[in-house]
Structures are given as structure tokens and as C-alpha cells.
Design a protein around this nucleic acid. Structure first.
Length: 302
DNA sequence: TGCAGTGTTGCTTC
DNA sequence: CGAAGCAACACTGC
């Protein structure tokens, strides 16, 4: 679910709070195969318990937590993951409500926002400061791994450049786009071309750049590539400034909403009037199975 | 009731 | 090799 701005917001939040703290315990009710990469959850615990957190980083949509045994804990929230920070208590009873599990965990400081996610907590780290990092993950697609420093570099090597890095230039973008035969919408979302952009921000970036989402990546003119380049930086920075998008369910680790959804240009605005030209109607089309929204006038040229 | 749709990625198949 | 389709899973809305 979260794209670069949401992961960046989450990482910035955690950086201020968990560096220097120790992991003292861990819990999960994910299926065992989620931890088969290291021979099961008990082995996973042995790798992390007693270790101090030295840093929190983001690469693409991955959250990286560096431990003082030179290992890296990698968390990818995928579609519905939310990394939360707070205090929860385990209840003994699991109440089976109308067709769904009631949570085994309750917030110690009840908050309407965090409580929404308590039913879907599937992973938790207990820290030496009495706080917990909890992964809410309705669809259970989340990825949790532990790597040696060198292995994580290998794992992340295939990802495309970070779009907000200063050394990411429009000429680099041009080289990447010329190599691809697919639509610009699909290419922007390809993590091995550029990292961190997903369905929401690719739509808003293309609206900003006035480029039709179905236009072939290699056919774009220099002018269009420059616009896309500027819009990538602009839209992503704006989204980070507003704390990410909470259009459906993204929350900061303390449960607060982001505000980019109020600023979004076209994503999920089918049928509305374009904010810029005031004439075009926002259309929705399918591009390789994903919804794509665009202005029928501003982004007309295929 | 049933089925399409949902912000991601990675594996299989062609 | 690239591209397409689908699976992982659970819920919502039409």
C-alpha cells in the first residue's frame, strides 16, 4: 500500500524514537512460512532479541532497521501493511465475532485511530523503552526479513534510483525511459526503473506533467521527460510534506492520518472536473490491471 | 449472492 | 529476454 512518501513519513517518525533502544522480545501470528527464510520465527527471534537499534532507513518502499550485530531488519508493508508505534496489551481471549477475529491486542492508550488496526496486528517488536512496534497487515502480504549487511545490498541492488536523490537527473531518467517499450504509467511504477512510485503518485505525476498515461515511454519527447522529472520531485516532496496519503487506510505510526489525499490531483477522482483546466473530466482506464486516472483534456495527447 | 476491485510484488508461463 | 497473468489474502461495494 504505502509508496515512497508514506514510507518516508514512517521512517522519519521512527528515527526520532527508536534509535538506541533494544529489541527485548518479538511476537507474531503470521503463518510459519513467512519466517521460513531463516528457519522459522524462533530462529528469527534469536537474530534480533537483545540487539540495539542503530538506525532506521528507507530504500524504495522498504523500511530498513540496522541492528548492532551488523544485521538489517527489512520490512515491506506491501498493500495493507501499517507499521505502528505505541503500547498494546495481549488479551487472553480471542473473541470470534461476526465472521471475524477480534483482536488479541488492545491499545493501552486507546485511540480511535490505532484501534482500527488492532484486529489486524500480526507482528510486534517489544522495545527497551516499554514501547512496541506493531505491524498491522489486513491482507498479510507484508514482507519481513533479516539480512547481513552485504546481503541486503545485494537484495536492493536491482532497484532503480531514488527519485529524490540529488544525483538523479533528467538525463538519467531519459536513459531509463528510452529503454522501455511499455506505457509511461507502467514504467513509472516499475521499481527496477525508478524506485518508490506506485499507483497514486504515478497518476498525479503524469497529470502534473500533462502526459497521457498510455503514451509509450520510449516515444516521449525531451520536453515531456523534463516535465515528468520535475513533477516526480514536486509531487513526492509535496506528499512527504503532507505526511503521505490516507485515502483509504494509511496512517503514520501513531495512527495519525496523512493529508495528501486532500491535495491529490486525479487519483480516484473519476468524473470530477480537472483542477487545472476546469474543463476536462477525470477519466479512468485500466492499464495492466491497475486503475489509472487522468484529465481527458490536459493529458489528451497519446 | 457473487464478483470485481483494492495502494504491491514476485513467480510462472508464453 | 520481455510481457502478461495470477497468486499471496481479506474485505468492501456494487
Amino acid at each position: 500500500m504505502p509508496e515512497l512518501p508514506e514510507v518516508e513519513t514512517t521512517v522519519n517518525f521512527l528515527q526520532k524514537r527508536i534509535i538506541g533502544k533494544k529489541i527485548i522480545d518479538a511476537w507474531t501470528d503470521y503463518q510459519a512460512h513467512k519466517f521460513s527464510f531463516c528457519g522459522g520465527f524462533e530462529n528469527f527471534k534469536k537474530e534480533i532479541i537483545g540487539k540495539k537499534i542503530e538506525g532506521v532507513f528507507r530504500r524504495a518502499k522498504n523500511i530498513l532497521i540496522k541492528l548492532d550485530n551488523k544485521k538489517i531488519l527489512l520490512i515491506h508493508q506491501k498493500m495493507t501493511g501499517h507499521l505502528l508505534y505505541g503500547r498494546w496489551e495481549k488479551t487472553d481471549k480471542k473473541i470470534l465475532g461476526a465472521n471475524k477475529w477480534k483482536s488479541a491486542w488492545i491499545s493501552l492508550k486507546p485511540s480511535a485511530l490505532n484501534d482500527v488496526y488492532n484486529d489486524y496486528l500480526h507482528f510486534m517488536l517489544f522495545l527497551s523503552n516499554g514501547k512496541q512496534i506493531a505491524m498491522s497487515d489486513l491482507r498479510k502480504f507484508g514482507k519481513i526479513r533479516i539480512y547481513n549487511s552485504l546481503d541486503v545490498i545485494e537484495e536492493l541492488k536491482k532497484l532503480g534510483p531514488e527519485p529524490l536523490n540529488k544525483n538523479f537527473t533528467w538525463q538519467i531518467l531519459k536513459t531509463l525511459l528510452k529503454k522501455k517499450k511499455q506505457s509511461i504509467k507502467k514504467v513509472l511504477m516499475d521499481q527496477e526503473t525508478i524506485s518508490g512510485i506506485g499507483n497514486i503518485y504515478s497518476d498525479d505525476i503524469l497529470w502534473c506533467a500533462k502526459v497521457h498515461p498510455l503514451k509509450k515511454s520510449y516515444q516521449l519527447k525531451d520536453e515531456e521527460i523534463k516535465n515528468i522529472f520535475l513533477c516526480i520531485k514536486k509531487i513526492l516532496k509535496e506528499a512527504i510534506k503532507y505526511g503521505g496519503t490516507s485515502i483509504q487506510d494509511y496512517r503514520k505510526p501513531n495512527g495519525e492520518k496523512g493529508y495528501y489525499q486532500k491535495k491529490r490531483k486525479v487519483y480516484k477522482r473519476e468524473g470530477q472536473i480537472c483542477q487545472r483546466c476546469k474543463k476536462g473530466i477525470i477519466k479512468r482506464i485500466k492499464i495492466s490491471g491497475r486503475s489509472s486516472f487522468f484529465c481527458s483534456i490536459c493529458q489528451r495527447q497519446k
